[in-house]
Write a protein that binds this DNA or RNA. Structure first.
Length: 108
DNA sequence: AGCCTGACTCGGA
DNA sequence: CTCCGAGCCAGGC
């Protein structure tokens, strides 16, 4: 249970349809603050199943570059199908579709 | 072990 | 707005 991947997948499953979350937010939801990169790694290891991986975008609101570009297309398509609009730069309006998380206190 | 790579992010210049 | 450097972690060689 304590597997990091499992916690990450669980967090991704909590993203509502029609919304998106950033890697960093998923990391926090999974209880792994600061490990955004590990989230990407976990998603890359996904085979198939009930994990809505397409609802995860980077901090800029755009689909992250993949080694295989066809998945980028797929992700945008899946998002649009859920009603998530992408602007001309391919970015999602996080203020509109992004999940809202309580910001953790910023420790300088 | 060391070194490189990759679905990341943040603060500063 | 862009570019950089520093943290981050797992795998392959």
């Amino acid at each position: 249970v304590t597997g990091a991947y499992e916690r990450i997948y669980e967090a991704v499953r909590r993203i509502p349809r029609g919304r998106v979350a950033t890697y960093g937010q998923v990391a926090e939801l999974a209880g792994l603050p600061g490990r955004a990169r590990q989230v990407g790694y976990a998603l890359a290891a996904l085979r198939e199943g009930d994990v809505p991986w397409h609802r995860v975008v980077n901090a800029r609101g755009c689909v992250s570059a993949r080694s295989d570009p066809t998945f980028e297309e797929l992700q945008r398509r899946l998002l649009r199908r859920e009603g998530v609009a992408l602007d001309r730069a391919g970015r999602v309006a996080l203020s509109r579709h992004g999940v809202r998380l309580r910001r953790r206190a910023r420790l300088a």
